[in-house]
């Protein structure tokens, strides 16, 4: 499965069973489209979890770039928020509805992240 973000293609290295959706979100700021990773309804595979897919997408963000993640269980939300906090990302928005959540992350600029 390939999603396209602007001109860049992003290949989801997951099986069809654990296929994840990566789409261009609506631009909320002039800096361009935001990537969206949808983990809802996705299952762990042996040694590969949906959360890792989101973390990989976060690591590939440029400084100042944003990523929106839709989670399906609170464990995913907890993990991603905690991971972001420890790794120089800002949690700009967190909207929870039952077990699901929409989280908007921004990769801090090097100075702000203390790098």
């Amino acid at each position: 499965m390939k999603g396209r973000v602007g001109e860049a293609s992003f290949e989801a290295a997951m099986s069809t069973e654990a296929e994840l959706t990566l789409t261009a979100g609506e631009a909320s700021e002039p800096r361009g489209p935001r990537m969206v990773v949808d983990l809802r309804g996705r299952e762990e595979m042996c040694g590969a979890s949906p959360v890792n897919f989101a973390i990989r997408a976060l690591k590939e963000l440029p400084l100042g770039g944003e990523l929106e993640v839709l989670t399906g269980v609170r464990e995913q939300t907890f993990t991603l928020v905690q991971w972001a906090r420890k790794n120089g990302y800002e949690v700009c928005e967190l909207e929870e509805s039952g077990r699901e959540a929409r989280i908007r992350f921004r990769r801090r600029a090097a100075k702000a992240a203390g790098l």
Binding site: A13, M14, S15, T16, E17, A18, M45, C46, G47, A48, N52
Partner: peptide
């Protein structure tokens, strides 16, 4: 107890772990 796709032989390991 694997997924139906693994049981049927459509996949053999998660793509992130091709060496396994």
């Amino acid at each position: 107890v694997r997924s139906p796709a693994e049981f049927k032989g459509e996949i053999t390991a998660p793509p992130e772990y091709p060496t396994e």
